[in-house]
Design a protein around this nucleic acid. Structure first.
Lengths: 133, 133
DNA sequence: TTATTTACCTATTGACATAGTAGGTTAGTA
DNA sequence: TACTAACCTACTATGTCAATAGGTAAATAA
């Protein structure tokens, strides 16, 4: 299940792509109102997008947020994985996790691997520009 | 993320398909040992499989569990949905849930719908017999 | 009939994640 | 100097996950 963190993050990015023409900074308040999401909660989400270098923020009057790249240069997959952690169907498939000692005999592992590839290809094949009206 | 409930349920079903030849009842203790999973925890999972009519249990000496259908007559999707609830990527797509008031203007909904179809088709296209060695 | 085996039942626990809220400080602009 | 907006830390309620604990009921083999 994709949580609100990931879903709201994508909506913020789309909002910026649609309303942030010519590199203007868009106040979070405006985004929150347009999207019908609590501004306070969006602050938490946007903070992570800034840390990751997906957005840049500017303080003070006339400040706000804007995209760092062109919409076609963001994939939906990287946004989701940033906000939610690895896009893995099962814990055994998370990179860097302790490898499952039953992996070699596990009859379900190939199933999860196949689903994992499907999911990964789907979300990394979608770009922010594909979602903008 | 598929939790242990769903994953263990599938492994129990595979174990029964492989070891329960000729309609014999297989004790949960044996399954737990073969699979390396706590028997106590499996009891909870197996209980749901019985309630749903996927398995049948027999008490007493010589008892245990067995499949009710042939392995090719179970889909992985129905097992997962039984154990984990709807296989939906986002809350707005759960059947019977309160419909999202923003659905008509939501720019991300088509994305989740497409992913949902992909996931559904994948898991309902896989059968228990596909996982048995 | 008795002992054994096995399913079946209810309750509880610790750890963690989710979805926020609350209240303040810093930075930049008009 | 007033205002705006980002930025920061902390807190909380609710729920889910992954089990564990300790029993009762049913069926069979000796």
């Amino acid at each position: 299940m994709i949580s609100t963190r990931g879903r709201y993050a994508i909506r913020v990015m789309i909002d910026l792509a649609e309303n942030g023409s010519e590199g203007a900074y868009i106040p979070l308040k405006d985004i929150a109102e347009r999207q019908g999401i609590s501004k306070k909660y969006l602050e938490i989400i946007v903070k992570d997008l800034v840390s990751a270098g997906f957005l840049v923020g500017a303080s003070g009057k006339g400040g706000g947020y804007k995209l760092c790249r062109k919409p076609e240069e963001y994939t939906v997959g990287e946004i989701i994985e940033l906000m939610e952690g690895p896009l893995a169907a099962v814990a055994c498939l998370i990179d860097g996790a302790a490898p499952c000692p039953r992996a070699s005999e596990c009859e379900t592992l190939p199933l999860w691997e196949e689903y994992d590839r499907l999911t990964h290809d789907f979300f990394y094949g979608k770009r922010l520009s594909d979602l903008v009206r």
